[in-house]
């Protein structure tokens, strides 16, 4: 099966120089794993100065094309609100949402919402950010039942210990909570080879405001991470002051460490939306060549 009119494709390829390119990857710094796939990028590299739309009435029948005009469908990154210190790093999710918008094709809300564990709105998004400093309070039976259902139906909860390793109370209470809502499951360190460390950026450490714990804890079942616990205060690294400066200093790495934490946060959200998509790629070549043309 070949395109009946190769001239159209040639035209479109020529058009690539003037069209927005949304390639899946960087042509400048391909990751080693990308190279292993053996796939090549045929289109020319995009020119950052060009505009988005191909002109209407192109030969080949693309006269109907027009940039989408409606509002994009925005993703919420809700944070759990509970009695106690539920927002030790205010605005952390807002910053992460902004960075996701700037760095990826995701379209998060500018102002992520907050949600209570007993509210129906908990099920508006299959992602939940739970931050805390010190022990989590008892959320109540109804809330815990909702959280259990949230996870069972495919939701992902990200717990973030704002203490950054200085106090184990939050981690301990998260373990206790999970023991009740997911009996038989335990938080365990996530391998550095896990796809969450390469879902967008290549990251080798669970970065945060601190560098105390060298592993991300998670419950992995049915081929996916259902719960994650970051213990190096990811929110602390993300949070900003009103003037846009880092709200909390990252130690010991400073600004570089903050950037890595930002990348790690991006990876977590890409994992939340694509799950183990990046795990497919290692098999692409085999997959493509294992079958013959129909």
């Amino acid at each position: 099966m070949r395109p009946p009119r190769t001239t159209r494709r040639q035209l479109l390829r020529g058009l690539a120089a003037t069209a927005p390119l949304c390639a899946l990857g960087s042509t400048r710094a391909p990751a080693p794993s990308a190279l292993r796939t053996g796939l090549h990028f045929e289109a020319p590299a995009p020119d950052a100065t060009v505009l988005a739309a191909p002109p209407p009435g192109l030969p080949g029948g693309f006269g109907g094309w027009a940039p989408p005009t409606g509002d994009p469908i925005r993703l919420d990154l809700p944070q759990l609100e509970y009695e106690g210190n539920w927002a030790p790093r205010p605005g952390a999710m807002r910053v992460l949402a902004r960075e996701l918008r700037l760095r990826t094709r995701l379209e998060p809300m500018s102002e992520p919402t907050t949600v209570g564990a007993r509210e129906r709105a908990l099920f508006e998004t299959p992602f939940l950010y739970v931050a805390g400093e010190g022990a989590l309070p008892n959320l109540g039976d109804e809330a815990e039942q909702n959280l259990r259902r949230f996870i069972d139906f495919g939701g992902l909860i990200l717990f973030d210990a704002a203490d950054g390793g200085a106090d184990l109370a939050f981690t301990r209470s998260v373990r206790e909570l999970l023991g009740r809502i997911m009996p038989g499951s335990e938080l365990a360190p996530v391998s550095a080879e896990h796809v969450v460390f390469r879902s967008f950026y290549l990251v080798d450490y669970p970065w945060g405001r601190t560098q105390v714990h060298d592993s991300l804890l998670a419950i992995q079942e049915e081929g996916r991470l259902k719960v994650m616990l970051t213990r190096n205060d990811l929110g602390g690294a993300l949070a900003e002051t009103h003037s846009g400066l880092a709200a909390y200093p990252c130690t010991p790495g400073g600004a570089d460490q903050r950037e890595w934490a930002m990348r790690f946060g991006v990876n977590i959200l890409l994992y939340a939306t694509c799950t183990d998509y990046k795990a497919d790629r290692a098999h692409v070549e085999t997959l493509l060549r294992s079958r013959r043309w129909k």
Partner: peptide
Amino acid sequence: ILRGFDDIAREDTTAPLSLIPFP
């Protein structure tokens, strides 16, 4: 598609990405 054109334009060239071209 994980990045749009504008994302690529803002790309930090030092950031190691795990992305591949769209074949």
